[in-house]
């Protein structure tokens, strides 16, 4: 049986390795939480105007999610978005595969260093304002795989995470609770501090 020889792209591979190595060496520390929404200082200084209210209402009720479905948590995310747990109540049933359409990235699964540049690229392509939910133990800290040689210990090494949802995998109820937290957070943001 003749099997054709697989093509091979050493330059692309070499470029990919460089990107991975660069990202790996530049993300040794967790990124802090993005907006200081609980920060006293800011809370005292912002004016919750009607404009803010309107904008925030619009933003929080139509969170479109980017699919970043890497591993097991995905199935709990899909369960949540199917009819039983009905994520459509929050205007979130639209799953987008294009980062340019989405406001929220739910990191459902383990992140490996090989995958990290791709996720970061997706995040960078999303339009502001954007939010990140780290779903599951892997999203928070690498979870059961934290010791592994190829796993990123938490998405907060490469993305600013807004809400963390523990669990391995988190139940749909937990995911919904996390989404509820994010909506609260959006409610309290203001155009004067989050772009």
């Amino acid at each position: 049986m003749e099997v054709r020889i697989e093509p091979c792209y050493p330059e692309i591979d070499a470029h990919e390795s460089r990107v991975i190595e660069d990202l790996k060496s530049s993300s040794t520390q967790p990124i802090a939480e993005p907006s200081g929404w609980l920060d006293e200082e800011i809370n005292r200084n912002i004016l919750v105007t009607t404009v803010d209210k309107l904008l925030n209402w619009g933003r929080k009720t139509s969170l479109w999610t980017e699919t970043s479905f890497t591993a097991c948590c995905t199935f709990e995310f899909i369960s949540t978005s199917s009819s039983r747990f009905d994520i459509a109540r929050f205007g979130m049933e639209v799953l987008r595969s294009s980062p340019r359409h989405s406001d929220l990235i739910v990191t459902a699964g383990t992140l490996t260093w090989k995958m990290a540049p791709q996720i970061k690229r997706v995040y960078d392509q999303m339009a502001e304002p954007k939010w990140v939910i780290a779903m599951g133990a892997c999203g928070i800290s690498g979870g059961i795989f934290a010791d592994s040689y190829s796993v990123v210990p938490g998405y907060n090494r490469i993305l600013p995470v807004d809400v963390y949802i523990p669990g391995c995998p988190p139940r749909p109820e937990a995911l919904l609770a996390g989404i509820e937290k994010l909506r609260k957070k959006i409610e309290q943001s203001s155009i004067s501090n989050k772009s």
């Binding site: 099997v3 020889i5 697989e6 091979c8 050493p10 591979d13 990919e16 991975i20 090989k114």
Partner: peptide, 10 residues
């Protein structure tokens, strides 16, 4: 025919 790394990067 193509001995290159498969899971980890070059």
């Amino acid at each position: 025919p193509k001995l290159r790394r498969i899971f980890l990067w070059e």
